[in-house]
Design a protein around this nucleic acid. Structure first.
Lengths: 209, 209
DNA sequence: GAGAGTACGTACCGTCGGTATGTACCCGAA
DNA sequence: TTCGGGTACATACCGACGGTACGTACTCTC
């Protein structure tokens, strides 16, 4: 049941996260004070500490919102493609787009790891963009009958996810983002083509065990 | 000329960086207070602010030290190999080792970007480990007469550097780091083998322009 | 309509980064 | 020899910020 109090509460909380996301994006985590957030949301610190346990908690709320936006964009773009390689191409483009968003770069990539800590950051990551990359990597690498165990699939996913994150970051700061994105697409495409070559040649992934 | 004053000064500064590196590694940047650093070095804040302009400056000193250690390790390991592919293999192993060091993970990977800011972080990076990865990528990719322009080489470098950083981080937190490192080596080796395949087949890198 | 819980507001505290100022010491010039 | 000046710190203090304690108005339920 939605009572008026609940609606007021929800809107206050939402306004706080709105302002927090904006200020965190513009100034970074440490340079954003709680006073500035509550002033922007036209409330006081009492309201903030009623809804969140502290600064880290409201950051995490903004973090999750930004992550879920990025995830939605990639899912939407990669859906509708049946062929795994086409799906990967479309997902790659969407990923490169998402990672250029200022909020994503500042909150998720830059401040995320240090504010949330490694393990918590990893947790958040693994149920959003990382999971999507994992799905795409799985569908691409298992095409053609490769049998990779879960550990090896996860290793490939980490590698590709790291590659895409770094590449996306460089795209975002490039003076010509469109050209940089095109280069990244070409390079990633070339690497994937190499994997396809091996696949067609019947080369096995070496067993590290 | 080295006077006694200069020696005293150098040792005080060195002690401050020693303690700072340790505390930053253990607790992270924000959770490490300047009071704790100066207490650990048995001096006062006056001494710290005489040698450094502030908290960020002493962090950067620790950052540079950790980076140069990592760089030295990789250079040492990859030296002595003539064949680019062998050089890459050796460099990869050394990189995976370096990136597992707690100081490197916390100070360089986790806190580095948010504390120094993107551009400053990038500057520091590009004259240390990134430069080495770039050299190796260049020597590997230009073998056999490929002609890639600088932009494309840099794109490949960013991709591999990001891949290796992420992979190294996952190795560090794995419950069996040795096995995880072996998986990463296998996966990277497989990707490079794919590139070799394309190289032998005479496939051109698509021109994104 | 009265008690209880919610959704805040207000006032305050401890910590921390940074600064201003003082001081002991060393070193080169007169 | 001494004496001015610069170096290498120490001491005292400030303002900002994260967090807490407590008060209060409003609302929902019984």
């Amino acid at each position: 049941m939605k009572t008026r109090r609940h609606r007021y509460s929800a809107s206050t909380k939402g306004a706080l996260v709105d302002v927090a996301e904006q200020l965190f994006t513009e100034n970074g985590y440490t340079a954003t004070s709680l006073d500035a957030i509550v002033a922007g949301a036209d409330v006081t610190k009492g309201a903030l500490y009623h809804h969140f346990s502290g600064k880290q908690a409201i950051f995490e709320a903004a973090f999750e919102r930004v992550e879920s936006r990025a995830t939605a964009g990639i899912v939407e773009a990669s859906a509708g493609h049946r062929d795994p390689w086409e799906k990967a191409q479309a997902g790659l483009r969407a990923f490169l787009d998402a990672v250029q968003e200022p909020a994503y770069r500042q909150i998720v990539i830059s401040d995320g790891p240090s504010v949330l800590g490694h393990e918590r950051f990893r947790e958040q990551e693994e149920r959003s963009t990382y999971a999507i990359v994992g799905e795409i990597v799985r569908s691409v690498l298992t095409t053609g009958g490769w049998d990779l165990d879960e550990d090896m699939l996860d290793t490939f996913t980490r590698i590709f996810f790291g590659a895409l994150s770094a590449a996306g970051g460089s795209v975002a700061v490039d003076e010509d983002p469109a050209a940089a994105a095109a280069r990244v697409e070409a390079a990633i495409g070339f690497i994937m083509a190499g994997l396809q070559q091996l696949l067609e040649a019947g080369v096995e992934v070496p067993d590290p065990a």
